[in-house]
């Protein structure tokens, strides 16, 4: 996951690459397996930095050392407010939506309102690429004839909704603040890495397992077949009705996932890293 983050973060002339140079992080390389600890620290640094910048922007603080003038109660309220705001802003939907059209039988005719395959009928295409009604329509079904059909230069939409949504998507692509989207992505991935790191430091087995669960869509999306299989097997071993491990082994899998080299609380590290 960290490698995916680095691929996205340090792509071309992105901010993270710039930050790496400005803060002289020469040991950080794009290849995570070579410099794991440096990358991990850098990611933490960048995440903390952007979180603080976000707060400075919201509370209108000119420098990082400016102390806002507020009572301790107000400060606590502001802290809650700012944190909630950051999380809500960077939040990505983690649930997977499967479009219902994928579940239909393959041989269903997917075009036109009538959903019937009329042989030899002339069809017209809706200009909205995201048209949900079928994209191609029989002239008869939309009240057109070969004489009244729009010319090649003219645009045609099957409905007012398609016309409006096409307008919206056009204007949206011009108004997207790419820099902001990039920072949001960075923060989302950074925070995501941070909570996993905390779970490992505390050897919080149930949480680590839970994170494996929410990482599955990421593994599938980025074609990490090995981790998809590993994660799936791990989760299947102790959740639901299919749990097939004896209690002792289950306990071992949940709680024996980290190693504490230096002793003390909150200093566990990943077993595979050791």
């Amino acid at each position: 996951l960290m490698q995916d983050t680095m691929n996205k973060m340090c792509h071309k002339k992105r901010d993270a690459l710039h930050l790496k140079n400005v803060f002289n992080q020469r040991s950080v390389s794009k290849n995570v397996s070579e410099t794991f600890n440096y990358v991990s620290d850098f990611l933490k640094f960048v995440t903390e930095g952007y979180t603080l910048l976000f707060a400075m922007e919201m509370l209108d603080l000119p420098t990082l050392d400016t102390v806002p003038t507020m009572t301790s109660a107000e400060a606590e309220e502001a802290l809650n407010y700012v944190s909630t705001c950051i999380v809500d802003t960077v939040w990505n939907d983690v649930t997977v939506h499967i479009p219902s059209s994928n579940l239909k039988e393959e041989d269903t005719y997917g075009f036109c309102n009538c959903k019937e395959d009329i042989e030899g009928a002339v069809m017209i295409e809706c200009e909205n690429v995201a048209c949900t009604e079928g994209v191609w329509f029989h002239l008869e079904c939309v009240g057109l004839t070969e004489e009244t059909v729009p010319g090649e230069d003219e645009v045609w939409f099957c409905s007012a909704e398609c016309r409006n949504s096409n307008k919206r998507s056009h204007s949206a692509s011009h108004t997207i603040d790419r820099k902001f989207e990039y920072v949001k992505m960075l923060l989302w991935r950074g925070l995501s890495d941070m909570i996993r790191r905390n779970a490992v430091r505390q050897n919080d087995g149930p949480m680590i397992t839970l994170y494996w669960k929410c990482d599955l869509p990421q593994f599938i999306k980025h074609n990490h077949t090995k981790y998809t299989i590993l994660g799936h097997r791990l989760i299947a071993k102790f959740t639901g009705l299919n749990c097939f491990l004896p209690k002792r082994l289950r306990q071992d899998l949940i709680w024996n996932r980290t190693i504490n080299l230096s002793g003390g609380r909150g200093t566990n590290i990943e077993t595979d890293l050791v």
Partner: peptide
């Protein structure tokens, strides 16, 4: 404190994530 802000954001992020995972 700066560390409080980062920690608080982290906690809220964690809470929001665990709320959304089905079958917990």
């Amino acid at each position: 404190r700066k560390a409080d802000l980062v920690m608080m954001t982290d906690i809220l992020y964690h809470e929001k994530l665990t709320k959304e995972i089905p079958g917990r």
